[in-house]
Design a protein around this nucleic acid. Sequence first.
DNA 1: GTAATAGTGTCTCTAAGACAGTATACC
DNA 2: GGTATACTGTCTTAGAGACACTATTAC
Lengths: 227, 227
Amino acid sequence: MDAKHTADLVVLTIRDDLLKILLVVRENEPFRGRLALPGGFLRPGEDLERTARRELAEETGLEAHQLPLLQLHTYSDPDRDPRGRVITTAYLAIAPDLPTVAGGTDARSADWVEVDDSLREQLAFDHWIIIDNAMERIRSELEYTPLATSFCPQVFTLSELRRVFELVWGVTMDPGNFRRKVATIKGFVELTGRKRHNRDGGRPADLYRRGRARTLNPPFRRPVGAR
Amino acid sequence: MDAKHTADLVVLTIRDDLLKILLVVRENEPFRGRLALPGGFLRPGEDLERTARRELAEETGLEAHQLPLLQLHTYSDPDRDPRGRVITTAYLAIAPDLPTVAGGTDARSADWVEVDDSLREQLAFDHWIIIDNAMERIRSELEYTPLATSFCPQVFTLSELRRVFELVWGVTMDPGNFRRKVATIKGFVELTGRKRHNRDGGRPADLYRRGRARTLNPPFRRPVGAR
DNA sequence: GTAATAGTGTCTCTAAGACAGTATACC
DNA sequence: GGTATACTGTCTTAGAGACACTATTAC
């Protein structure tokens, strides 16, 4: 049988010291007016990753040519879309805090919503399941891959990096042990030699950039009590 | 745009002390006569996991109602199928050594092929990429999930379980350390109390069954030099 | 007894967690 | 000086790897 196919995006960032997801208000039926993941239909000649990038730009104004996309999962319940047979593949994008986004053609507006809040909303389609699955995947990816650095700008402090782990896992971590742990993982981060001064005083922090490692060895272990 | 959608299966087992994958010889064009993953087209009312189960039964005679399927990745290159726009979602199934399989309707024959051999064959479509990605995924899953027990029958010895890790990772492991490691992971395996006697002598081995853990804590660490 | 396989104990080293102490900034 | 943030060191414990040793079978 023939089906339509969409790519939906879970776009995450840290803003105001909170973990936030990019959601759009649907402009068209079905679920007009509801919050939804940005995304849209596959076009001829495109693969799904290109669809995801194009829709992200169209719906939110985020140009993401260099943003790495991670394919998450494909949802194919026959009844998941009231319009008929629509299969969707979810992609993950993580960005450092970005300028406020603007709605594009398909969506009335695009905004950052705290992830926990988004899961309490009435979302369009099965999007709450997609977000829920995505969050569990991200919590796991933090253990074994340098994904956490995707939340940080090009150069960052270890406090910023630690905050990513704390927000995603819902824990607090000892700064000293975190620093030592990061240092034992080869290729995770590199010293830049520069420092960042704080407004309110305090010792200036060393600035780091991402390393070349594509996998963390040894991996992080999610603390007991973490999400 | 509309597209056709297929589910393809990476079915693995250990036979003759080798890691083997289930492949079919294609009965129809395109790629008639070539080896391919079992799989086929989505039908109305089915989700992709049901498609995968149905095709597995039709093409290979394997009834897999209770076999857990793990969704791997969706492949959507516009040119991946010469017939036109066909997107495929790959699923993983792992089975303990099974009775020899027979070809079904769509496929001339189904047979177990050593995985490394399969990657040297000229496979249909992009199936070598799917297998390659699947193997990397499995190597990773062994670290964090009880997937290894899926290769074993309901009750098994620790030597059998250790052999799964050795074959998938391409290493040899110290039996004593492996035993101690397995014991520290809560809910990974449980003692049955029974023992298995060997033909050629040797101390009888304790028999275990899978535990309830869905994630390994602490996880295994892939030895250096492992695949 | 020997050969074969299963299982235990011990020693060393790495890594994790708790937490005290030091360093460098702003005020 | 006080406060705030960044970083270092030390102690204890858990886990990994190497490897010697004991246990139980077939022959």
